[in-house]
């Protein structure tokens, strides 16, 4: 494992906490998904599908726990993203910046699409396209996420 469990746990907790607080100060940042960035990062870095899966699921469930939404929406979404990210990273070299930015964009879109699908399936009554920002959010995630990836690599990655 390229990161200690403590580091992973801290990253997750901080991301969830900050994500819960940031929109209070800057509403626009509600379109940012810090926990998702963390999941993508650890997914790409760990290269073990089960690790990505567990990290994604725990992160998502924590996020759900703090939100007023249904428990499992983010849990399932981020679990799938983490699983896919770690699965891909085992086959493709993902340390290149372009790859990382592309991964951030792609997985952000995928995350939104899965979330939309689940909401459509389970909570169709409250579904609205206005809730989703299929361009803004992925771009914002990529813009914010890439520096985080770089910093995390420098300070927390073991290899």
């Amino acid at each position: 494992m390229r990161f200690s469990l403590v580091v992973v746990a801290l990253f997750i907790l901080v991301a969830v906490f900050v994500q819960a607080k940031l929109p209070l100060w800057i509403p626009f940042l509600s379109r940012l998904d810090l926990p998702l960035i963390v999941v993508i990062y650890f997914g790409l870095a760990q290269r073990q599908p089960t690790h990505g899966l567990v990290i994604g699921m725990i992160t998502g469930l924590l996020q759900d726990g703090l939100s007023h939404g249904a428990l499992g929406m983010n849990g399932l979404t981020k679990m799938l993203v983490g699983f896919l990210a770690s699965s891909i990273s085992g086959r493709v070299e993902v340390d290149y910046p372009v790859i990382r930015i592309a991964a951030l964009l792609a997985f952000s879109v995928l995350n939104l699409l899965i979330f939309m699908l689940l909401e459509k399936l389970f909570f169709a009554a409250r579904f609205s396209w206005a809730h989703y920002h299929l361009i803004d959010s992925p771009v914002l995630n990529a813009v914010v996420g890439f520096p985080i990836f770089v910093l995390a690599d420098r300070y927390f990655r073991r290899d």
Binding site: P49, L53, M57, L71, G72, M73, L76, L80, F83, F122
Partner: peptide, 14 residues
């Protein structure tokens, strides 16, 4: 693991 966890969470959502 993926299928199991997915099913569990789908059940949770359900």
């Amino acid at each position: 693991l993926l299928v199991t966890a997915t099913l569990l969470q789908l059940a949770l959502l359900g």
